[in-house]
Amino acid sequence: MVKIMGNLESSCGKNPELVVDFCTGIEEDSDIAFHFRVYTNSMVVMNSFQKGGWQEEKRMFSDPFMPGQPFELRFLVLENEYKPNPYQQSVSLAVGFMVKIMGNLESSCGKNPELVVDFCTGIEEDSDIAFHFRVYTNSMVVMNSFQKGGWQEEKRMFSDPFMPGQPFELRFLVLENEYKVFVNNESFCQFAHRLPLQSVKMLKVKGDTVLTSVDTF
C-alpha cells in the first residue's frame, strides 16, 4: 500500500492538480503502469503510458479533493488492479440494485477506525446525501441523510459487527421503501428512503479502510 497525505494549494488562481505515477524506471520516458491525475473541481483521470504512448483513458467525473483542504490518498495493489481510497463511482439506483463492499478496517495512531459510505445526489462536496452510513468501530453505527445544507434526524445502532483488523463484507440492497444493510452475510439494519432513488448519482466510500473490492449489481 502507498499512503499520501498533503494539501492541494492553488497557484496563480488556477485549480491545483495532483499526479501520482507508478513507473517502470527513473527515465523521463519510462513506461507508467498507473497514472493517476486529479483535476480539482472537475475529474480524476487514470491511464498507463506504454511504448511511448498513452493508452485508453478512464475518467471519473467526481473529485473528493478540495483546494486548501488536507487529504489522505491511499493506493492498494491487488492481484488485478490498483484500488484508490477514497473511492467514488457513478451509480443509477433502482429497486433490486445492490452494492457490495469488501475490505479491512485498520487502526491509525491508536484510534478506532471508521468507515463511511455515502449515496449522494452529485459529485460536489455539498451535494445532498440520500443515505449516510458511518461505522464507529467498538461503538456504534450512525445513519442519516443530508438535505438542503443540513443533516436530518439521525438513526443510531448501538451494535457494531465490524472488527478492526478483520475483513468485512458490507452489502446495501435497494428496496422499494428502504435500504437494507447486510454485514458478513447477516441482516444488520434498514434505512427508509428520504430522497427519491432517481436522485442518487454517486457512491462514495472512505475511511480507515483497505478496500479489496467495490461491486454493484
Rank of each mutant, 00 (worst) to 15 (best):
G13A: 06
C12I: 11
L197K: 14
E178D: 08
S48H: 03
K100G: 11
F182N: 08
W151M: 07
W151F: 08
N185S: 11
H132N: 02
K14Q: 13
Q55A: 03
H132W: 04
E9I: 05
S30A: 13
V181A: 06
M202C: 14
W151R: 12
P113V: 03
G6K: 05
G6I: 01
L211G: 04
C189T: 04
Q89M: 08
F65P: 01
F36N: 01
R156S: 01
C23A: 13
G207H: 08
L115T: 09
C109S: 13
D126H: 13
F191C: 07
M143L: 12
T40V: 01
K155D: 06
S48R: 04
A192G: 00
P70W: 11
S42V: 02
F146G: 05
M5G: 06
W54I: 03
S213L: 10
N144G: 01
M143D: 06
E186R: 05
F65W: 10
N177Y: 03
F61L: 11
S139N: 14
E9H: 07
K180Q: 12
N184F: 01
K206P: 04
F162Q: 00
E106G: 00
N184V: 03
M143T: 03
I129H: 14
C189G: 06
P84V: 12
T40K: 03
V117C: 01
Y87L: 06
D63E: 12
F22Q: 02
E57K: 13
N112D: 15
G25P: 08
I32C: 07
Y82Q: 10
F65I: 04
S213H: 14
E28W: 00
M157D: 05
L78V: 09
K148L: 15
C23T: 10
F158M: 04
M98Y: 08
E106Q: 11
E9G: 05
M102S: 12
V44E: 04
V210L: 15
E106L: 15
G53K: 07
T216Y: 13
L203H: 15
L115F: 14
F22V: 02
T209R: 11
N85D: 07
V99D: 09
L73K: 07
V99M: 15
F168A: 06
E79N: 14
V91P: 13
E124N: 11
V141K: 12
L76Y: 13
F217W: 12
E153A: 09
G96C: 11
S159Y: 07
Y82C: 13
S62V: 04
F65V: 03
C12K: 14
Q88D: 09
Y87F: 10
T212V: 06
E114Q: 12
P70R: 13
I129D: 12
V38H: 04
K58D: 09
R171H: 05
V200G: 05
W54Y: 04
V38M: 06
N138I: 09
N144M: 03
V19N: 07
T137P: 05
N80S: 14
L73V: 00
V77F: 15
G165N: 00
N112L: 08
T121D: 13
D21P: 00
L78H: 11
L93D: 01
K148A: 15
L175S: 02
S62K: 12
F75Q: 12
G165V: 01
D29W: 03
M202P: 06
K111V: 09
D63H: 13
R74P: 01
L115W: 09
E9P: 03
V205L: 13
L115V: 07
C12Q: 10
G25K: 10
S107M: 10
K100Q: 15
S187Y: 10
F36P: 02
F162A: 06
S213F: 11
